[in-house]
């Protein structure tokens, strides 16, 4: 029983931290820009595909993961360009790019699935680097949690810093009050591009890290990923409320961890993996509905 709980907890943290990058990415579009950016469904597997293709051709895992981030940023920029220059609704622009990316991802991978079990990963490399200081660690779930956590804290700090800069404030204001920030001299076509690039870079990194952790990249790994990210952001917000940039970032990550816990629990109580999307949909619905029923005092 204790061992079971421990395994559950470790799995929750490991997967939660890996998907934390997804939460941060979705936070930018879903919360700051107030629209569900479906590019995520393509940029998440794009991150996995780019990292996997580079890893099997011998590229260093860190370089492969950074390349995934750049590819994700590119995908976000394309969505932003379709939305701003062709004046197409942002959700539709995301659907267009998501659809195109399916073929792009297949081209990058050359097939539907790339196994990575024999390839080096950022998690293994990090342990190897730490062992250079004479620690003598072996790569296991604890080291993965540690590496993912450190990366996530760095990414979260980067986001908090960015959204406190002149450009970052302009990006936030673009989602909140576009006429105002236009009136203050900001080209919102550009800030939308920055926001979507940043968001999809984080989401692609999440895909790259998950692929390395799970030992494969798969063309179907992105299905339903936006809903996962949105559910996580909403769960986090339902707990922490809306109290500024640092809270949002922490809430998004905690939201993902709790989301993973709920999914793991659902599997333990007898639901099967085929039911997972149903569970995700139910969680999303709960997260959307619960804040309405919260007593006023907690708001």
């Amino acid at each position: 029983m204790v061992a079971q709980l421990q395994a559950l907890g470790l799995n929750m943290l490991e997967q939660g931290f890996l998907f934390g990058f997804l939460g941060l990415g979705v936070l930018i579009t879903f919360r700051f820009f107030r629209f569900p950016d479906l590019t995520a469904e393509g940029s998440y597997p794009l991150g996995g595909a780019v990292a996997a293709a580079l890893l099997v051709s011998g590229v260093h895992p860190v370089a492969a993961t950074l390349s995934a981030a750049l590819a994700g940023a590119g995908a976000g920029m394309v969505t932003a360009l379709i939305h701003t220059k062709l004046k197409i609704n942002n959700i539709v622009a995301g659907i267009v790019v998501m659809t195109a990316l399916y073929s792009v991802n297949l081209r990058i991978m050359g097939r539907a699935n790339i196994p990575l079990l024999r390839e080096p990963t950022v998690f293994g490399e990090a342990v190897g680097w730490l062992n250079g200081f004479g620690l003598g660690w072996r790569e296991n779930v604890y080291t993965t949690i540690l590496v993912a956590f450190v990366l996530l804290v760095a990414a979260g700090a980067l986001l908090v810093w960015f959204f406190s800069t002149d450009l970052g404030l302009a990006v936030r204001a673009t989602g909140q009050n576009e006429p105002m920030i236009l009136s203050l001299g900001v080209d919102t076509d550009r800030t939308k591009m920055v926001g979507l690039a940043l968001s999809n870079a984080f989401i692609a990194v999440s895909g790259a890290l998950v692929a390395q952790n799970h030992g494969f990249a798969d063309i179907g790994m992105g299905i339903g990923i936006l809903v996962t990210g949105a559910a996580a952001v909403l769960i986090g917000e339902a707990i922490f409320g809306d109290r500024g940039i640092l809270t949002w970032v922490v809430a998004a990550v905690v939201g993902v961890v709790i989301y993973r816990l709920l999914v793991a629990l659902a599997l333990r109580v007898g639901l099967e993996p085929v039911d997972l999307r149903l569970v995700t949909a139910a969680l999303l619905l709960m997260a959307l509905a619960v804040p309405r029923f919260r007593p006023r005092l907690l708001r």
Partner: peptide, 30 residues
Amino acid sequence: NESTCAGMTIEENLAMAERRGRPRGLRLAI
């Protein structure tokens, strides 16, 4: 609601206004 940003703080709103018409880079706004 149109001329200020409700979800941001007074100082953040003023910082955005202070940069009116000038390039916005990666320096801390405040």
